[in-house]
C-alpha cells in the first residue's frame, strides 16, 4: 500500500474512533468528560499532517485540486482549530459535536479518487495558495461555530425548560458557548472576505477577468452575506444567543452546500475535478 494511502487511512481511523467516542460520551451518565477523544483526534491529526505535506511535496501545490484532497484538507483545518480550542478553553463535550463534522468530510474524501493531478500552469500562482488557505480556514472556523452553535441550542433548551440533568451538567456555560461562537465568526468572516478578494485577484491573473458569476463564486458570496448579516445584527440590535446560534448553523449548511453541492451538482471552473 502506498504510504500516503496508509497515512490517510490512519488519520481517518483515529478521527472515526474519536467521533464515535465523542458521541458515546453524550450518553454516558458520568458527570466528567473524558479527554481521550482529544488525544485520539491529535493522533489522527499528526498522521493527517504528514499525509498532506507528502501530497504537497509530490504535487508541488497545496493539495486541494480534487474532491478527495479538498475534503481532506477541510477536515485537517477543522481538526486544527478544534485542537487549539480544546487546549485553550477545555470546553466539555466539544469533540462530541466537532469530530462528527470532521468525520463527514473525511468519509466523503475517502470515497473520491485519490490520484495526484497536475494542475494547469494557468492556475499556478502564489495567489492560489493564499486564496485556498484563507478560504479553507475561514470555512473551518464556520464549522466550529456551527458545532458550538448546536451545543448552545442544547444547553439553552435545558436551561429554558428548567431541567438540570443529563447533558446540562456536562455542557459549558451559555456565556462561554455564545462568546466562542461569536469569536469564531469574527475570525471566519474576515478570512472569507480576504479569500474572496484574493480569489478575485487570482482570477484576474489566471483568466483575465475578476468575476465570472461561477456558481461557487455566487454561493460563496451568499455565504459571505449571511455571516455579514449575523455580525451586523449582533452589533446593531444584539442578535445573540439562540438567534446567532441558529444563524451560524444555517451559515455552515450553506458552506457545506457550496463545498459539495456546487461541486457535484452545478459544476463550474471551481470544480475540484
Amino acid at each position: 500500500m502506498e504510504i500516503n494511502v496508509l497515512l490517510f487511512e490512519l488519520a481517518l481511523t483515529f478521527y472515526f474512533i474519536a467521533a464515535i467516542m465523542g458521541v458515546i460520551e453524550l450518553f454516558r451518565r458520568r458527570k466528567t468528560v473524558s479527554k481521550t477523544t482529544g488525544y485520539l483526534a491529535l493522533a489522527g491529526f499528526l498522521f493527517h499532517s504528514v499525509n498532506i505535506i507528502a501530497r504537497y511535496i509530490k504535487g508541488g501545490h497545496i493539495p486541494v485540486t480534487n474532491l478527495h484532497e479538498a475534503a481532506s484538507f477541510m477536515s485537517w483545518c477543522i481538526v486544527l482549530l478544534f485542537l487549539l480550542h480544546e487546549y485553550r478553553y477545555k470546553l466539555g463535550l466539544l469533540s462530541s459535536f466537532i469530530m462528527p463534522i470532521v468525520l463527514i468530510f473525511m468519509l466523503s474524501s475517502s470515497i473520491f479518487p485519490r490520484e495526484i493531478k497536475e494542475i494547469s500552469p494557468l492556475l499556478r500562482s502564489y495567489w492560489f495558495g493564499i486564496h485556498v488557505i484563507l478560504a479553507f480556514m475561514g470555512n473551518a472556523a464556520f464549522a466550529m461555530a456551527c458545532g458550538i452553535g448546536i451545543m448552545y441550542l442544547i444547553q439553552e433548551r435545558y436551561v429554558k425548560s428548567k431541567r438540570l440533568s443529563g447533558l446540562f451538567l456536562k455542557l459549558p456555560s451559555l456565556q462561554s458557548l455564545e462568546e466562542i461562537n461569536y469569536h469564531l465568526i469574527t475570525m471566519g468572516f474576515p478570512l472569507l472576505t480576504l479569500a474572496i478578494i484574493s480569489g478575485v485577484i487570482w482570477a484576474n491573473t489566471a483568466w483575465g477577468t475578476y468575476w465570472r458569476w461561477d456558481p461557487k463564486e455566487v454561493w460563496s458570496l451568499i455565504t459571505w452575506l449571511i455571516y455579514a448579516i449575523v455580525l451586523h445584527l449582533r452589533l446593531s440590535i444584539g442578535w445573540r444567543g439562540k438567534k446567532a446560534a441558529i444563524l451560524s448553523i444555517l451559515g455552515f449548511a450553506l458552506v457545506m452546500f457550496t463545498f459539495f453541492g456546487v461541486t457535484l451538482l452545478l459544476k463550474g471552473i471551481h470544480v475540484f475535478n
Partner: peptide, 24 residues
Amino acid sequence: TGIGKGAVNISYAAVELAKKIFDD
C-alpha cells in the same frame, strides 16, 4: 456513584444555574 451530585437545596440550585448561564 453520583450520591453527592446535584444541588439539593434551593440556594445551591440557584448558584449551579448561574454557573451554567454565566462564565465568570
